[in-house]
Amino acid sequence: MKITITVNGEKREVETTPSTRLLDLLRDDLHLTGTKEGCGKGECGACTVIMNGELVASCLVLSPQADGAEITTIEGLGTEEELDPIQEAYIEAGAVQCGFCIPGMVLASKKLLEENPQPDEGEIRRGLSGNICRCTGYQKIIDAVKLAAKKLAGTGKLAGAGKSRGKGGGR
């Protein structure tokens, strides 16, 4: 079966099956391997993407369920030359160790900061509660989100403003 999805602003038609997860479609068919598979059952958050403006675990979405959807993966944020402020903050705060959870963490941070540009520590912890990190002990990740909030406030560039906010209205 064929589905149409818009990934990081680009419309794609993909041949898929009713047993293929959005995660597999992104990684194997579209070669967007920034999205990781950790547990495969929605508990670790490594496969997190933003679908129609909402944070979802792509291992628990069938690709036909995503037909017509707009997806943002980690590849849709910054590039190595021009990092997203959230990515910058993660690097500056030393929040990245092995890195496997980071794509999901950064996307969860992005959603959190879009909805709540100045979260307190409790709100950050709740916003990232679907993402597990086995390296850092989380403190530096929390620091990174606080730093990202400052950076975004400073540049006046709200996370995702213009780029993906408003796009995701099609629920």
């Binding site: 929605g42 508990e43 958050g45 997190t48 909402e54 944070l55 979802v56 675990a57 628990l60 979405v61 969860a108 959603k111 709740r126 916003g127 509660s129 679907g130 993402n131």
Partner: peptide, 9 residues
Amino acid sequence: VGSPQIRNR
């Protein structure tokens, strides 16, 4: 329930 990702779906 669950986490933001689970509550959203």
